[in-house]
Design a protein around this nucleic acid. Sequence first.
DNA 1: TTCCGGGAGG
DNA 2: CCTCCCGGAA
Length: 218
Amino acid sequence: MTDLLHTYQKLLNHYGPRNWWPAETPFEVVIGAILTQNTNWNNVEKAIANLRKGEALTLGAILNLPLETLEQLIRPSGFFRQKAERLQLFCRYLQEHHQGSLEHLFDRELNLVREELLQLKGIGPETADSILLYAGQRLSFVVDAYTYRLFGRLGILSGKEKYSAVRELFMSNLRQDVQLYNEYHALIVIHCKNFCRKKPLCDSCFFTEMCLYRQQNC
DNA sequence: TTCCGGGAGG
DNA sequence: CCTCCCGGAA
């Protein structure tokens, strides 16, 4: 499946390296990964700005803040009640099982860490992989709705594959390189925001002959 | 004013 | 399957 590499090259040529994820620290990556579930990043930015202004961007602050206060700070990110609970659950877990240290959490065999993350309420596969890759620099490819959409339209996915199958497809066909995984997912995100939207802007998209969708609909 | 977009759990 | 929610675009 050299298509995956070819697609990566085209994206990288067009956008250049993204150096994701937009956060100051690994802990902020985790917070952002939870807040951005089913949510635009613009809304997450407002929530993070509120947390920062409220000096609430630390594990201790999130644990000690009254739930209602935390809810109001992250309100712009949507689903604020469940997300506030999930932030506190994650922080409490990190506190009690890893001395509050993400490094301690990450410093074991990949699948052990991943399974541990997946046990936590509010951390599904995409959030777990985002945390592993972008907060932990661990080799775990992130699959999201954009991945299904872009590669579905390119004719590489049918859309019916399970999350794990898509992740394994990428992981078994790409170099085992954290920076490559980081860039690839970031490039998929920006391309789907710019062009490969639900209502795609095919006219200005640089995937031409290799896009099945474009061949059939444009 | 309605509509759109975006993960996880139940 | 459904629910949880917002901000910005239409």
